[in-house]
Nucleic acid binder design. Structure first.
Ligand SMILES: [Mn+2]
Ligand SMILES: [Mn+2]
Ligand SMILES: [Mn+2]
Ligand SMILES: [Mn+2]
Lengths: 217, 217
DNA sequence: ATTTAAATTTAGACAAATCTAAAAATAGTT
DNA sequence: AACTATTTTTAGATTTGTCTAAATTTAAAT
């Protein structure tokens, strides 16, 4: 596995929705910040190695083998993110670039020992689940904050958008994983929401409520 | 800096003796496990970027800038080796291959935080010094075990050969860094040496005594 | 059912890092 | 000093991953 192959498999993994449709060449190229022709080239190579199933013009789907490799890269990425935050004083908006590099280090022992050293975490610093060594993730019944009705409460357990900008915004308004959010009011006009948490009230935009996952409480 | 450029600079760094002579193309190619023609190609590229001084047929020398980059890679390599041994239960003969990968991860914060997390170690698990962030290493007045005369004692502080085989041999005979070795006898015939340590006596070969560094005690 | 637009693939080129084989330079030896 | 052996460089080819531009296929719209 080359670095590039791993990154493409990871991108296909993230773009694969649960429905049966394959990932389109354009979507893949966009995710990889490259051109569609380059994506086509790589798709062919991955298909040759039978990490993906590919029919011309029909998009790609991961094979069982390809999905395992992709999940293993995601596992490493997220374990390293935990390490950076828990042990090396990184903030949650600083870990991604470094984890992008660390996820490609090859050593079975390294990742298993790291997992143990971190006490077998199940989620990364952004609330995303960490696949086990067989590529399995235990699904969490989380819902978007925007789905809560006024009066309902939920614990913040994850994010849809994990961009640096959004993470820094959440830092600023003091929303972090584990915090309990109560929906006080919804403004039908623009779908903004008044939240209560930490003994304060704050109005947030529809963007914010559709990018935060909660477990109802 | 590409991965390949970093590895070549590191190889030149390790091959540079204190005398003024440059590193020969053949020596460099051998160290990189590649062909001389490939080494020449890379030397030209590094010279273009002024990381080395190069005159055809005269070998290469690192410039100040090249030496700093090489030292930084060595610093990362050795810090990661410490991490693997101290935190992740690696043995000293298992760390090198993984450190070869980790040394190329780019993040100023990562390496400085790792350094602090490890409590600013000065040597790696094999006793090799860790350059500081400016590429400086404080030289240790260590001598080869073979230079001790019968009756003299020394603390084991480093190794010349850090191959897996030698490390595993040292594990087997229970010699590790920090242990005190006393030379009881030298056999002129084959330069084998009778050592006393840990309340036991053991005869070791000339190879062993010329690949262990001690600080006289 | 054509025509137009969008998505996708192909063809050909390029940079990085490597190789083999051949040429050139240096070092060692008579 | 001339010849030989070794070292080093050059020339040309190869692989990987990328690009642009053109051709092809599919989807959408008359
Ligand atoms: Mn990430
Ligand atoms: Mn994450
Ligand atoms: Mn090492
Ligand atoms: Mn070492």
């Amino acid at each position: 596995m080359t670095l590039s192959e791993e990154n493409y498999l990871k991108a296909i993994y993230h773009l694969s929705d649960t429905e049966g449709k394959g990932v389109s060449t354009n979507k893949l190229a966009e995710a990889m910040e490259t051109k569609a022709s380059s994506a086509t080239d790589m798709i062919k190579k991955l298909a040759d190695k039978s990490f993906v199933n590919y029919k011309k013009y029909q998009g790609v789907k991961l094979t069982k083998e390809g999905r395992l490799i992709a999940a293993s890269v995601v596992r490493k990425h997220r374990l390293w993110e935990v390490f950076l935050v828990e042990k090396l004083n990184f903030n949650w908006d600083e870990v991604h670039e470094v984890a992008e590099q660390l996820e490609h280090v090859k050593s079975e022992k390294l990742i298993e020992e790291l997992d143990a050293y971190l006490d077998f975490p199940t989620v990364d610093p952004h609330g995303d689940p960490i696949p086990d060594k067989y590529g399995e993730i235990q699904a969490d019944k989380k819902v978007l904050l925007s789905s809560l009705k006024p009066g309902e409460k939920g614990i913040c357990v994850g994010l849809e958008d994990t961009s640096k900008e959004f993470l820094q915004y959440l830092d600023k308004i003091k929303i972090s994983l584990g915090i309990e959010l109560k929906v006080l009011e919804k403004e039908p006009f623009d779908n903004s929401v008044v939240l209560q948490f930490n003994d304060q009230q704050l109005t947030v935009s529809a963007f914010t409520t559709t990018n935060i996952y909660v477990r109802k409480s």
